[in-house]
Nucleic acid binder design. Structure first.
Lengths: 246, 246
DNA sequence: CGTGGGTTTGAAAAACGTCAACGTAAGTGG
DNA sequence: CCACTTACGTTGACGTTTTTCAAACCCACG
């Protein structure tokens, strides 16, 4: 039970697992699935929960794999990926601390998940968590709320991809990032955990267009870029006006 | 209770409502929210359900309106719409018989809904349906399943919008339509209920690009178009190859 | 039979992607 | 500790695709 899991993909490192779950004392429940549970219920969860960690670039699971585990992110950033048959890539979402991971498409993962930064996860085997769902309706209700919010967010993203220009998309993206804490560094700047290629696959553009648009924003004095990853938004209102086509 | 509701938007016709719900004898429960209910529970639902009908082009509700009612579609086709500030339009989804309608974004509708064909709906006031959800966990579980499937579908669509070419998008769209029955007419042809503009707003393209791509498919012998709305897919495998970039 | 909205088609322009070269920051091994 | 390497990012020139603008067309409707 405490040993590493089997390999998933070709050349994949084994999962580093540590049995140390102390759900009852967890300080990161806010807004997550386990937020609604009593102490007893948290102990039950604890009984089958495992901590897993991943290094940047590691794959947590692949699209189409049998769905064996659900996860909660307690630390780090993850990208959700879908590929077309010829290798073109789309990033569905970036996930952060507190996000729930493991969308069920007929018993299989609906997307691949990869760590962008060092990541720490609570891992729940599917049978046990589903059994707990069945016994704990409020937990199911919580997941329904989470999925409702995800649907709303995805529909905004569909609208953006269908109808916004590259400038508008990047402005929208940066402002959304700025709303997340955990990325903020000191002076109101944000530290982008993802590469330009990640951003381009998220926004449906090329890496060059992303780069050019960053440069344009910078030249126009809307923002400041330091060492490529750190962005200071200087003119939030103007950026907002671009994002919302006002 | 049996009278018409108040107007919603400017110049909106009043809602035509008929009290005749007989959930217990309903023949269209398959795959819907009410599929899981017992006879007694169906009677409870019946108690606050109303039938509503809409003509083509009528708006059922607007994005941002207070969410007062949920709906089940029993007949017809609906488009879900989001607008940008300057009027650019995106169609999030087309909904058909059996689909559940009324995504909750903080107490407001997350999108506008408009009838494309004559539409018949079961209408459930929010307080009553939510009370029933609270008492009937399996109903909540059913909705969770429905939303899970919607999320999976939306993620495929995000991938398509981000990375597929116009040809690939239209091929994907047509093959998806062909899978729905209710649109099939006799000889394996499909009857498109939506306009070219609807399709372009769904696929994130212009109406001209849609039209040209239709013409190209037709010239290549992949399909046949009759009277603009009726499409016969002649070479499903080739269209599949285009859609899946094989 | 005429009218008009939706659709198709064509030509021109713009936007974005592609290709290629160059820069830059971080990491590695001597 | 520094030069070398490498991966990532930026910039420029160019080509293609898609949009835009405009006109013609066609079917459905009155």
């Amino acid at each position: 039970m405490d040993g590493p899991l089997v390999d998933k993909g070709p050349g994949k490192a084994q999962y580093p697992l540590v049995k140390e779950g102390r759900c009852r004392n967890c300080t990161r429940r806010e807004g997550t699935l386990c937020d609604v549970l009593t102490c007893d219920e948290l102990d039950r969860l604890d009984g089958f929960m495992m901590i897993a960690t991943f290094d940047p670039g590691q794959t947590i699971f692949f699209e189409g794999d049998n769905l064996t585990n659900y996860y909660n992110i307690t630390e780090g950033v993850i990208r959700l990926i879908k590929l077309l048959a010829d290798g073109r890539r789309a990033i569905l979402d970036f996930l952060y601390r507190g996000d729930f991971l493991g969308l069920n498409a007929k018993g299989q993962y609906a997307y691949s998940a990869e760590a962008i930064t060092p990541v720490r996860l609570c891992r729940f085997p599917r049978p046990q968590l589903q059994a707990m769902f069945a016994d704990t309706p409020k937990m199911e209700g919580r997941l329904l709320g989470i999925y409702t919010d995800k649907l709303v967010a995805n529909q905004q993203r569909l609208t953006d991809l269908a109808r916004k220009s590259p400038r508008e998309r990047l402005a929208t993206f940066l402002l959304d990032l700025a709303k997340k804490d955990g990325l903020r560094c000191g002076d109101g700047g944000i530290l982008l955990p993802m590469s330009r290629e990640d951003i381009s696959d998220f926004l449906g553009l090329t890496i060059e267009t992303i780069s050019r648009t960053f440069s344009a924003f910078s030249k126009e004095g809307l923002l400041e870029i330091q060492q490529r990853k750190k962005v200071n938004i200087l003119e939030a209102e103007k950026l907002e006006a671009i994002a919302e086509s006002l």
